[in-house]
């Protein structure tokens, strides 16, 4: 991947994703944090596109930016008397240290390891291949996932239902 477009796109999207993620930490208002989280999700979707994973990118926009974030917004609004200031607990410093250590460790591993890269091009079309894989090779996990979704749906309804 060394054509100009890909490189520019990668750097712009990375900066957008990580910058938005940092803003999630930094902003003082929880609603702003959710909106920056959405921006970060969209940046990740863009990164998927540069990796020629179009189906996953669209699914990311559809589910994360369109559905999960709206759920989060609803949760924030349904808890009106809770603090909306996006503050930290006493675990701020340990959390920061741990997060830095994890970043350094993973980064080091990522750079040091020889990943045995295959020289290969982009996928021509992923949607069909994913569909076939889901209904052929991964049909059992697929069914289990649907059961999980059903269970989650019923669970959420039972939890929040007024009676």
């Amino acid at each position: 991947m060394d054509d100009v477009g890909s490189v520019v796109a990668f750097w712009m999207l990375s900066v957008m994703t990580l910058g938005a993620a940092v803003m999630v930490v930094a902003v003082r208002n929880l609603i702003y944090a959710v909106l920056f989280l959405i921006l970060s999700f969209i940046g990740v979707a863009g990164l998927y596109l540069t990796l020629s994973a179009d189906f996953v990118a669209i699914a990311q926009v559809l589910i994360y930016a369109g559905a999960v974030s709206v759920l989060i917004l609803f949760a924030v609004l349904l808890t009106p008397r809770a603090a909306r200031d996006n503050a930290e607990t006493f675990l701020q410093v340990p959390g920061l240290v741990l997060a830095t250590l994890v970043a350094v460790t993973i980064g080091a591993i990522a750079l040091v390891t020889d990943w045995n890269e295959a020289t290969r091009g982009a996928f021509p079309e992923t949607a069909g291949a994913i569909g076939e894989a889901l209904l052929d090779k991964y049909v059992l996990p697929f069914e289990i996932a649907s059961v999980i979704l059903l269970a989650a749906m019923i669970g959420a309804i039972v939890l929040v239902r007024e009676d």
């Binding site: 959405i38 179009d54 974030s69 949607a127």
Partner: peptide
Amino acid sequence: DLNVGVLFVIAVGSVTAI
């Protein structure tokens, strides 16, 4: 001419809520 055009239309439509 995306090969996931239909899905794209739906995904983009869902973002208008934000």
